[in-house]
Design a protein around this nucleic acid. Structure first.
Lengths: 166, 166
DNA sequence: ATGGTATTGATACTCGGTCTCATCGGTGAG
DNA sequence: CTCACCGATGAGACCGAGTATCAATACCAT
């Protein structure tokens, strides 16, 4: 009934939860688990469905609440796909960063801010704005998907890619 | 019944429409007008309401269709506010650019890509991704709002700002 | 005038997300 | 141990943005 894969990632999330003074309830543990075992972006609906598949049924609201919580702890972040759809991704809570998202499999990687900060400052200065926040989103094809699509186009195979959001 | 402020901006939009082979129908002209006379970001619902205020009532779907059209012509772009809400902004259709949005009044300015392109390439290279697209969104306070908020905090006045989305 | 295509409006629907509210459960005080 | 309390939960209503469907209409060319 309760999966608890308990990867390091899951633990990290649960600890973050407790550190912030929230109860690590079974539901939240499950969400942490699901979220941690996802290597790409996901939606609330994904989690809900995966939860049900694990024989646990949570209210929709609970998922959203958990996700809000994790978002506020910066353990997950919301991003806006090129299609305009929203999705969530797990990420490192500490340093300011951006996301590089594979449009093939949905995998997402944190990208350090790097020189972007300076660039942003420069833009703000040039326009006379006081910049409060910025967001950079990068979309492309990850190495695995690139390789897959190359070998596929060579062999005619049409499956594979990466594990994908799972 | 039909406002037709017909600024240069409005004309530009209508021409873009015709150039692309679409009819410049009254509805579309109105949308162009509304969009052009907005100096910040707006939503479909905003346009609808403003249209009605001008005594013209269009179907909701028509607005969305017009907006889709303008988006495909790159005359407007959709952006994602920090709140997660979607909004549209007018912009220059030609060069690749990003948006700098005032969180006070909603005004938005196009920002040239500048050195960002190189930075993006570098990130792609570093992660082994083939970058297909990127999006940078900057949020801050525009000079007018900054000034307004400064004088306000000095005088205790609480109105003003910029024209705001209108 | 006539047919065909583009446009439109109404309406139903989907989807992500929020709100409300009654219930449930763990924890701490007594 | 019991009780009260408060946080967490689920169900379901609700909401706003956007899409889909479909019939009615406007426009254009012939």
């Amino acid at each position: 009934m309760r999966p608890s894969i308990n990867t390091i990632q899951t633990k990290r999330i649960i600890e973050a939860l407790e550190r912030a003074g929230y109860q690590a309830t079974p539901n939240r543990r499950l969400v942490a688990d699901l979220v941690a075992s996802t290597n790409g972006h996901f939606t609330a609906a994904d989690l809900l469905e995966r939860g049900r598949r694990e024989q646990v049924k949570m209210g929709r609201a609970t998922i959203f609440r958990a996700l809000d919580l994790l978002t506020s702890l910066r353990v997950v972040e919301r991003l806006d796909l090129p299609s305009g759809a929203h999705a969530y991704v797990v990420c490192e809570p500490d340093k300011h960063h951006h996301h590089l998202v594979c449009s093939g499999c949905g995998r997402s990687e944190d990208v350090a801010d790097g020189e972007l900060g300076a660039l942003v400052d420069e833009i703000g200065r040039r326009h006379g704005y006081e910049i409060q926040s910025h967001r950079l989103e990068l979309f492309g094809t990850c190495p695995v998907c690139t390789a897959a699509s190359e070998s596929r186009s060579a062999t005619g195979d049409a499956s594979a890619e990466q594990g994908g959001p799972a």
